[in-house]
Design a protein around this nucleic acid. Structure first.
Length: 772
DNA sequence: TGCGTGCTTCTTTTT
DNA sequence: GAAGCACGCA
């Protein structure tokens, strides 16, 4: 008997040892799911199954990487190397590149990220003269994405009466046309969006049975993690691949299905028995993570949902503390209390910072929490948010890479044709793009014809365009052969990006420059380790990988001892000794977009369940009675989810007692007193904000905004009144705001100190004696 | 052509 | 509190 099998409980062991035939592993929260998956794969390898015959699909690169590392430890690097383990998107992108010519794509196809897709949709809507108020790129993309995930191509979409009726009903009857053009443009640009990677895989398998057969033979054993989060498109791919051997093991927990918003179908796991009648079922119900109290509380919540597989998750750890409910007056105070408690517990329980997590529903909540932690000098780390790969400077450089690899890539072309500035303005670009569109060409192809076609561009501009193209072409010759890091560095230099950023000595500019360096280092690192085929990856390999990477794939593990901040979604699969769950207010959690519809509300409740079950020892749930939203103070109602917890497992934490002074001060400053205003502002919007808010001020008494750049948090309270005069704020200039109010005169001066930041230089408030 | 300015809109979660 | 867009001026 293999020694690792002894580390498992009976059911886990059975799940690991049952290799043949379809199996469904229902893995409750904290039940050792990852362990079962890794051991199962290791076990298969020990039994002599070749790693190249195993396909293991995960939802994040991180999950795949970690699992691979653990398996490598058990069976050796060499063997683990040949496993096909990764996300749906990355693995099927790989297959699509192999088979690209069969579906009419270049194997060097680009992958459009969400931003690219939205931009393209905006362009199309503009061309069709559609009202951008009605046809919001977000919603349109949502419709298209939804269609693709259900295998509805543009052609089917246009021909489907019911879909068209739905669109007409929502006053967007033209979506089918947008979809059609969108699809054509992507094809012309040799580009796929995220959903295409799955859709085209399905199309490939449907149109070419011999190709499907090939992969069915290759992937004799298939494992899928987080099966409850698969969408229809992914479900079909798995079904097709598993058809001949039926050695399919899916792992998941219906109670943790939280991605319906992007097309995940909880039915996939609920209906597994219908698709694979001879399946074996393994229910992992023992929770090894949390105290009895937390597990029981979580159970009492999830019980409220109708749609689920019956199971009995239990814990054999100690009873543990009750869940503590914290009430705060404001969102700022909430952050303050949490920061205080982290310090207290860290001291009293000898916990590390990294034993704490603060979870929230929306990314927007993180800023206030950060602020509170910074004030107390508590180190923290934010997961998610704006990804490294979505920063402007990174996307700019990546766009160069993309265009070099695939010159048809229109979104990349548009992004960098005039960055850094080379005198090709919007007017010229639009002429070129119109010409391209009329002839159904990509921008690049159109630009080639500029010498023979007259489209009203001056010869100077044409020359500039061709110079730009010259740079790109020069590199496309060497991108496959050249040493990756050096090639990338040369591109950064010769494109002018490095010079442009080097010249910018503002803090933001310096940070951008450093980010570019970091990207280059990342390339160096990536291309220095050998890939599956035992070769050094080229720059092309890197680029084709990078579009599917997220923030978590870039963060380094060095700086360990930090409080973890993240959305509940990104906390899935993680665990912490102490968890703070912030912002438990109606309309925030559950989100106001979800509370009207039962199935969406159930998804929110599952999300709540996920949040609770992240905690090992202690869970705090907090809500604020008032919260700022769009610069306005809203009253909040405690979330219904708090009432969903069986009251036996919760207690009120009277954090306010120790916070009395803070609360008082704070409630004052947000306008409880008549004629009170708070001024702050950021570098770009200062004037607009001031003006707008002062306009409102004529008849109200509250004004607020805050300087988010600031090491200088400017909080100036001014007796409210009428705005008098100001000077526009700009880089390196001084902004003076002067106001005469019914009973006060205020002057505030901001100085940029040559930087883009606002520094408070001078503030004066004179109270005018009121004669009446 | 580029930049500054003012207005508008936007927020759920992410591969 | 931030980003995109359109407009107008140099």
């Amino acid at each position: 008997m293999y020694s690792y099998l002894k580390e498992l409980n009976e059911i886990q062991r059975q799940a690991v040892e049952t290799i043949e035939g379809p199996s469904l592993v229902i893995a409750g929260a904290g039940s050792g799911k990852t362990r079962v998956l890794t051991y199962r794969i290791a076990h298969m390898l020990n039994l002599g199954i070749h790693p190249a015959n195993i396909l293991a699909l995960t939802f994040t690169n991180k999950a795949a990487r970690e699992m691979k590392e653990r398996i490598a430890k058990m069976v050796g690097e060499q063997t683990a190397h040949y496993l096909w383990m990764g996300t749906f998107h990355s693995l099927f992108a790989k297959i699509l590149r192999f088979e690209a010519d069969l579906i009419g794509y270049p194997s060097s196809f680009s992958i459009y990220d969400t931003q690219d897709s939205k931009n393209l949709i905006k362009t199309i809507c503009k061309e069709l003269h559609l009202d951008p108020q009605v046809y919001k790129s977000n919603e349109v993309l949502g419709r298209i994405s939804n269609a693709k995930n259900n295998l509805i191509t543009a052609k089917i979409y246009a021909g489907n009466f019911q879909i068209r009726e739905t669109d007409k009903h929502s006053r967007k009857p033209e979506i089918y046309r947008i979809y059609e053009i969108y699809e054509r443009r992507c094809k012309n640009a040799g580009a796929m969006d995220f959903d295409d990677l799955l859709l085209k895989t399905n199309i490939l398998f449907d149109m070419h049975p011999e190709v499907l057969k090939k992969y069915q033979e290759k992937f004799k054993y298939i494992l899928v993690d987080e099966y409850q989060d698969t969408n229809f498109s992914q479900y079909l791919i798995i079904k097709k691949l598993a058809l001949s051997h039926q050695n399919l093991c899916v792992v998941g927990d219906d109670a943790q299905s939280i991605y319906a918003f992007r097309g995940a179908r909880i039915e996939n796991i609920l209906n597994f028995k219908k698709d694979y009648p001879g399946f074996r079922l393994f229910k992992l119900e023992q929770n090894y993570r949390s105290t009895k109290n937390i597990v029981n509380a979580a159970n009492s919540v999830i019980r409220k949902n109708k749609n689920q597989i019956q199971k009995n998750v239990f814990s054999e750890k100690e009873q543990g503390n009750k869940i503590k409910i914290i009430e705060a007056f404001t969102d700022h105070e909430e952050g303050h209390i949490i920061a205080n408690m982290i310090n207290d517990i860290r001291y009293s329980e000898h916990h590390k910072y990294s034993d704490f997590a603060i979870l929230y529903r929306t990314n927007a909540q993180s800023r206030i929490l950060e602020e509170a932690l910074r004030k107390k000098n508590i180190p923290y780390r934010i997961y998610g948010g704006l990804s490294f790969y979505q920063r402007k400077e990174i996307k700019d450089l990546l766009a160069y890479f993309r265009l070099i690899i695939n010159p048809l890539d229109d979104e990349a072309f548009k992004r960098i044709i005039n960055y850094p500035k080379r005198g090709i303005g919007n007017t010229s670009l639009n002429k070129l793009l119109n010409f391209a569109r009329e002839n159904n060409l990509s921008a690049w192809q159109a630009a080639i014809k500029l010498n023979s076609e007259n489209i009203g561009l001056s010869s100077a501009v044409i020359k500039k365009i061709h110079e730009f193209m010259g740079i790109i072409s020069k590199f496309s010759a060497m991108i496959n052969t050249g040493e990756a890091y050096e090639t990338a560095r040369q591109i950064a230099i010769q494109s002018g990006i490095l010079k442009e950023l080097y010249g910018d000595k503002t803090p933001e500019g310096i940070s951008r420059y450093e980010n570019i360096q970091e990207l280059l280092n990342g390339i160096k690192e990536f291309t220095s380790t050998e890939n599956d085929e035992g070769m050094k990856p080229s720059l092309v390999d890197y680029i084709q990988n990078v579009s599917l990477l997220t923030n978590e794939d870039n963060t380094k593990e060095e700086d360990n001892d930090k409080v973890n901040l993240m959305t509940i979604h990104s906390a899935k699969g993680l665990e912490f000794k102490n968890v703070f769950l912030a912002g438990l207010e109606e309309e925030l959690f559950p989100s106001k977009f979800s509370s009207s519809n039962i199935s969406e509300l159930e998804e929110e409740r599952r999300l709540f369940y996920v949040a609770i079950t992240r905690a090992e020892n202690q869970l705090f749930i907090s809500y604020a009675k008032t919260r700022y939203r769009w610069g306005q103070l809203d009253n909040c109602v405690p979330s219904r989810f708090i009432r969903d917890i069986n009251p036996d497992f919760i207690e009120m934490e009277n954090a306010l007692l120790s916070m009395k002074n803070f609360s008082k001060k704070h409630t004052n400053s947000i306008g409880n007193q008549e004629n009170k205003a708070i001024f702050t502002g950021n570098s770009k919007n200062t004037q607009g904000d001031f003006k707008q808010k002062l306009k409102k001020l004529n008849n109200t008494s509250k004004v607020s905004s805050s300087n988010q750049n600031s090491n200088t948090k400017i909080l100036n309270e001014i007796k409210a009144g009428v705005f008098v005069n100001h000077q526009r704020f700009g880089k390196g200039k001084v902004l003076t705001v002067e106001g005469v109010f019914p009973n006060a005169k205020a002057t505030i001066e901001f100085d940029t100190g040559g930087k883009k930041q606002l520094l408070l230089k001078f503030a004066k408030l004179e109270i005018i004696k009121n004669n009446t």
